[in-house]
């Protein structure tokens, strides 16, 4: 029983971080309709900046600078590239982001090289034990940060005029701009939020139990895609729920692999995607998505 609890806790703990990553996908998608394939390298860039700056200015200041820099990076990518696309459609924007991803990832690979950069976070490798279940302190902090951030985002999107404007701009740009909404501002705000969120996610993604910043972190962000999709493409609570589902499903599959041997080894890699396909069969818009993905 305590083993089951341990694996559940492991799943929830990684799932929260995946939810933070997935949240970045959601925000960019709802504010500008772009599938941000470069999100993984923005996550990596944020984490790298923290690791590179913290020896000189300390972890907290480095985290602040990295978050601001990642937000700025997002705004720049949107203003300089996305808004100047020759053709505005989702596939083109997605491929544009792949180009951005290639450039960013190459630069990060060159800078990081063969090293694994320590993050210098105050929680280090500490763990919290409750009733025989051990959870890394970093993940407890992540849970707290996630709750605060998502509550703030939820408030922004539903209770403030600007948030409503952002959603309106996303739902119908033409009408929104006729109503006086400045699409450049709502878009910039979305990309800034997503960039900042990416840096925060990057910090927790490279904290214990992961050992620091290496280029492979960019890949891990791909694991957040099933979380995003099964939660619903445009729902922040969906992103968190999706992350948790993916995390728990993976942890349980790994934990009980011996009982699932008929399906072959290495199931942990497949389970998120299998769960995603199953959910989409039942609910084509994901768990929390609006009725947008299908209509006829």
């Amino acid at each position: 029983m305590s083993y089951l609890l341990t694996q559940l806790a492991n799943g929830v703990s990684i799932g929260l971080v995946l939810g933070l990553v997935a949240g970045g996908f959601v925000i960019v998608f709802t504010s500008t309709g772009v599938l941000n394939f470069a999100h993984g390298s923005v996550v990596l860039t944020g984490a790298y900046l923290v690791a590179a700056l913290q020896p000189d200015i300390g972890f907290w200041l480095a985290a602040l600078v990295a978050t601001a820099a990642a937000a700025l990076l997002g705004v720049l990518v949107n203003a300089v590239l996305v808004r100047n696309l020759a053709e505005h459609n989702p596939a083109t924007a997605a491929i544009l982001m792949l180009g951005v991803d290639t450039v960013l990832l190459t630069e990060m690979t060159r800078r990081i090289g063969n090293r694994i950069l320590p993050l210098g976070a105050p929680w280090g490798a500490d763990v919290v034990s409750v009733g025989g279940v051990t959870v890394p302190t970093a993940r407890v902090v992540a849970a707290g940060v996630a709750v605060v951030l998502f509550a703030a985002l939820w408030f922004l999107f539903t209770r403030t005029g600007f948030g409503v404007a952002m959603r309106a701009a996303a739902a119908d740009g033409d009408t929104a701009s006729m109503m006086g909404i400045r699409l450049s501002r709502t878009g910039a705000a979305g990309w800034a939020l997503a960039g900042g969120l990416a840096a925060v996610a990057g910090i927790f993604l490279t904290s214990f139990p992961t050992q620091g910043v290496a280029p492979s972190i960019g890949l891990t962000a791909f694991a957040a895609i099933p979380a995003w999709v099964l939660g619903g493409f445009d729902s922040l609570p969906g992103a968190v729920a999706g992350g948790l589902i993916v995390g728990v499903a993976t942890a349980l599959t790994v934990g009980y692999e011996d009982d699932l041997q008929v399906l072959g080894r290495g199931l942990g890699e497949v389970v998120p995607y299998a769960v995603m396909i199953l959910v989409l069969l039942v609910r084509p818009n994901g768990l929390f998505g609006r009725q947008a993905a299908n209509r006829v």
Partner: peptide, 19 residues
């Protein structure tokens, strides 16, 4: 315990090993 290069958090594998 089979894993892939994308796995960077091995908590679940470690718990299984302890178990």
């Amino acid at each position: 315990q089979e894993i892939t290069p994308r796995d960077t958090d091995l908590s679940a594998q470690a718990a299984a090993l302890r178990q």
